[in-house]
Design a protein around this nucleic acid. Sequence first.
DNA 1: TGATCTTTTTGAGACGTCTCAAAAATAGTG
DNA 2: CACTATTTTTGAGACGTCTCAAAAAGATCA
Lengths: 382, 382
Amino acid sequence: MATLKEVADSAGVPMLTAFHALSRQDVVDEMTRRSVQAAADNLNYTLKITQIDIADLAGVAKGTVSYALNNSELIKPATRQKVLEAAQTLGYHLNISARNLRMNRTGVVGYSWHVADDPSRMNNLLDRFIYQVTMAAEERHFHLLTFVQPQANADLVYESLISTSRVDGFIISDVTYRDPRIARLTAMKAPFAAFGGMYLEDADFAFVDVDGKKGIRLVMEHLFEQGHERIGLLGWPSGWPFGDAREASYREVMHHAGIKIEEDWIAHTPNILDSAASATRQIMSAKYPPTALVCANDLMAFGAKSYLDNINLRIPEDIALTGYDDDPTAQFLGITSVHQPIDELAGTLFELLLGEINQDPLPHRQVIFDPELKIRKSTLSR
Amino acid sequence: MATLKEVADSAGVPMLTAFHALSRQDVVDEMTRRSVQAAADNLNYTLKITQIDIADLAGVAKGTVSYALNNSELIKPATRQKVLEAAQTLGYHLNISARNLRMNRTGVVGYSWHVADDPSRMNNLLDRFIYQVTMAAEERHFHLLTFVQPQANADLVYESLISTSRVDGFIISDVTYRDPRIARLTAMKAPFAAFGGMYLEDADFAFVDVDGKKGIRLVMEHLFEQGHERIGLLGWPSGWPFGDAREASYREVMHHAGIKIEEDWIAHTPNILDSAASATRQIMSAKYPPTALVCANDLMAFGAKSYLDNINLRIPEDIALTGYDDDPTAQFLGITSVHQPIDELAGTLFELLLGEINQDPLPHRQVIFDPELKIRKSTLSR
DNA sequence: TGATCTTTTTGAGACGTCTCAAAAATAGTG
DNA sequence: CACTATTTTTGAGACGTCTCAAAAAGATCA
């Protein structure tokens, strides 16, 4: 296809006139417009401003335009100015696809927000997380591509996105033991950074995490201070590092405090309100039911509270209750919870990822944040 | 850069040998590997399989490869087979950036899931929505780019994404009156399709919607059947089409039933649990408090229920309660709600968008779905 | 067999950007 | 001023794909 200048020359008018004519700005009289249009039709030209047009208008070479637009130090300020003005005049917009092809990068990072058909993923924490990650990406002129990860063969989706150059790398969450995605991405040298990983054995990849064991410890110590000893735990089914860590921490702290754990103080449930409520029933029907119940997250605490309300147990007088994640529901219901610094973590995570993408890993590839206990009335019986 | 064949020729080995040598497969002896590597270094070649390599290996022209890979009818089956085998052998992956540049499309659709710093967006419905849209996109070989939309000048973000060819079009939700995004996108002829729009005046764009007035009508009629007449409404502050429609519907139905509305049966609140609870307090302190409370969504119903629980009003015996959106919390709490067919709607929405993108709008550009009443114990006093 | 029509393959070129090596312009020096 | 060193600009070419018009191969028929 022709360039704008060629069209202008062919119509015998200045470039700017041709531009105005084709972009239908009314500074051009009808006759001129038609002749320009005819020239354009003749050359099979449709208006689309590229760096070449800027170069023609500013009277410089196209290479100069590229350098100028990218603020290269090479270019003399006066020249840059000239180029920018021409770009402005013509309403130029960079074509990302062309840049991507040339630079062999995309400025896009993949994140599988959803796991297909897994209702237990309903999770305010991850909502906040993805929001913060999106912000972190955009601050660095990246974008987030969200996709659905199938239950089976999750790694294939990742592979296809990276091998077709659709994305430059990935953010990964919900890392599990011997995660096939990690094995695959590592094998193909695809850049990624994870949220979670500190409780995996020899995790050799970039990640940020929040110390979940510490979070539980804070909760437990607070409950001890409140005079509780018979403490129950509502956790997830085992198999997920963060859940297992929380339960392990519970056991360690109890052991350390010299309290014998009754196994029927512990119940496991998926992330579903109903199940959480019935698991609570199970715990409360123990021979010596606990006086405090630690939940692995706020959703469970909410389910537990519903059950406790139903059987008219008062919180905190009859039983203390804690959640985890500090989500709005917990705040509203006055449930003691553990805050995870998602906002700060997201920026760090993205920096880690950029290090991986640029083949220049940060010195600290694994960053661990501290959780913070939010004490609310659900544990304050005095 | 050179092609694989040139490297192979220069090293004096068959293409496949060169390929194996460079991809470090152990079928090649060390000496050969070195000489191929030397040839590659010499030509400044790094292994990256393109259609040209496939063409060389299969002994056809590169154009043929492109046609074959895209299942063009032009190509003879035997040839296609040959090409596919070569592609397989070399582990070929399409380069999306190159295709995008050539075809001037991206296969990516933008969706601003988040509105910056707006906590009231916390909304399970939109979670479900975006999940379904992502699935719908992927079924059609598209991807979703999620971005953060600033509170002010939202339209500029949309413009930048489309004018740099980052996306082919947009999915839009939370459409409001004289939405600047819609004005801008329409003006620049950017393809988009919206969720919501039926209660805008002369909405001249593609959208799907769920009839919100009908949803409220179903709720009200059910409450009438249960014998209620003094019915309150917990709604959003006015200014949003869907919220205004729900309130308008409430008023219409009451009017039609010949019931005079007391203005202190109505309160407005943002999407925040605390505010919903206090708005409920306000309503319940009316001179003749309502016997049933209709909430604009489930989050509000949840806030309302908390307050009602606190003052020991029984649901449904003392007061009936309804929500809207049928989210898991409402299901768990047994709150009567209105289900919106998000799952079906997402596919339709995406089809509409594809019509816009391909400049071939569907015959029905505006599709309206019916909501469905889910009756639960919060309104069944018998 | 040769002519004509149809199917299949070819190869060049374009998409818009960035970057390299080389050329031109400018500054610095005696 | 002539020469060198430095800064700035140039212009070609590559990134990998798709598509067009043209060429080649194959089929049909007299």
